[in-house]
Design a protein around this nucleic acid. Structure first.
Length: 457
DNA sequence: TTAGGGTTAG
């Protein structure tokens, strides 16, 4: 049916054909049609300017929850378009949106700070008896906090039950965590003090606050929180201690970190792989590579097996404070032992190679990761683009960029920032011409994307 | 989505 639609937008519609054929006639026998991919649909939505045509096309399509969600994610950098899509499909005769799609739409509306639209979606969710769920509220509250409205977020939390969503200890802890992760630790701490009785604050509540203080390098306050927790009869867990340890490193207090680590051992804590990864990374970043290596050997002796994260921590340290070659040696060692490197492992090595100007070898590692079935992610692309730009090889950077547009990996705000800023730094008019020529997955030149939501990373 | 460890570079 799609192939028969003849409109001003015939070109865009043809994108939805499962198999591209030269023929425009409709085959009498139904073809084995695969549903169109989210990429195809997203392109169609972005290139169809006539709302009626778009609506007609989308409503004649068969939808499923995964396809709707994938399309919404594909349109993440085009929130208004994504929401338009959501609204159209919401009028489908035989399809109705699921909770997870609603949650995505609510997230999009919140990112746009369209709070009226957001609460309309929540009401719709309620009238269909699908929610809102704690997950919905976590999304809403996180966005309000990110938009600089933590007080409003707290009010929403306190009114959750009016929407049929219970306020329990779990969600109390989620709220504390959201506040802490946005560095509003004092507010979170005060909130804990006021409501710890009502919600029966537990070890997790206190650990979140202690970790929050660590995030803003206030290890003194973090320690106070842990002490207070003990006074209230709650025993810190290994997680609490690991967070504290990490906090010392973050704050540059390596001596305190070491003392704390020794104390953990003395008290016979069951030091785990996270503890070791933290100290290996911490000392390495502080420039004590030998100590990091010794701790790596020690953990193996102690029977605590390193995992991929541990290797990544040490690989990063070697790249930064020793040499890429020693990092590559370690990489080979881990592969030899049967560990499966992940995208971060490769990214660390690729960055290390780029950093010493070995762009060709860096590219080889990109090829290697692909061969090993580990697809490059947005960080991989961004770092290649960044290093090509820094080397003044804008054309190559754009080549990488075009490559990613044709794949599954979406550029993010970082990607555009790097490309655009490097062009402005050079102030070469031909760059601007090239930049305008580059096709983005969204259809226009990269400068058409300057209106991207600056909150989205 | 009930906490803790591993990416950028200034």
């Amino acid at each position: 049916m799609l192939t028969r639609t003849t409109t001003q937008n015939g070109k865009a519609l043809s994108l939805l054909r499962p198999f591209s054929t030269a023929s425009t006639t409709v085959s009498a026998t139904p073809t084995l049609s695969e549903p169109p991919s989210s990429t195809t649909i997203a392109n169609l939505i972005l290139t169809t300017s006539d709302p009626q045509t778009l609506s007609k096309t989308l409503l004649s399509q068969q939808w499923s929850e995964p396809l709707v969600n994938a399309t919404l994610k594909r349109l993440w950098n085009h929130a208004p378009k994504a929401l338009e899509f959501f609204t159209i499909v919401d009028h489908h005769r035989y399809y109705s949106h699921s909770l997870s799609s609603f949650n995505l739409a609510i997230d999009l509306a919140a990112r746009l700070r369209d709070y009226d639209g957001l609460w309309i979606l929540v009401d719709r969710l309620k009238s269909r008896r699908l929610g809102p769920t704690p997950r919905t509220f976590a999304i809403i509250i996180e966005r309000y906090v990110a938009a600089g409205k933590p007080d409003k977020a707290v009010k929403i939390f306190l009114s959750m039950h009016k929407h049929g969503c219970p306020q329990d200890l779990n969600f109390f802890n989620t709220l504390l965590d959201i506040l802490c992760k946005s560095k509003r630790v004092k507010k979170a701490h005060n909130f804990l003090k006021v409501f710890r009785g009502k919600f029966r604050a537990d070890v997790v509540s206190y650990s979140i606050i202690a970790n929050g203080w660590c995030l803003i390098k206030r290890t003194d306050k973090a320690l106070e929180v842990l002490e207070e927790m003990v006074e209230r009869g709650l025993s810190p867990t290994l997680s609490s201690y690991n967070a504290m340890l990490k906090g010392y490193f973050r704050a540059g207090q390596t001596r305190e970190a070491w003392r704390f680590f020794l104390e953990m051992k003395r008290r016979k804590c069951d030091i785990d792989v996270v503890t070791y990864t933290t100290v290996i990374h911490g000392f390495g970043v502080a420039g004590e590579v030998d100590k990091a290596r010794r701790l790596f050997d020690e953990m193996v002796r102690e029977g605590v097996l390193p995992n991929v994260a541990t290797y990544n921590a040490l690989i990063q340290v070697l790249c930064k404070k020793d040499s890429v070659e020693s990092a590559i040696d370690l990489f080979k060692e881990m592969v030899g032992k049967g560990y499966v490197p992940n995208a971060m492992t490769y990214n660390l090595l690729i960055r290390g190679l780029c950093h010493v100007g070995e762009m060709d070898r860096a590219s080889e590692y990109v090829g290697l990761m692909r061969n090993e079935g580990c697809e490059p992610n947005v960080q991989t692309y961004n770092l290649l683009i960044r290093y090509y730009c820094d080397a003044g090889e804008i054309e190559k950077a754009l080549g990488v960029f075009e490559n990613m547009g044709s794949g599954e990996c979406l550029p993010n705000l970082d990607t555009y920032n790097v490309l655009i800023s490097s062009m402005f730094v050079r102030q070469k008019s031909e760059d601007l011409v090239v930049g305008g020529r580059v096709k983005t997955p969204y259809g226009g030149g990269i400068f058409g994307l300057l209106h991207l939501d600056l909150d989205e990373v």
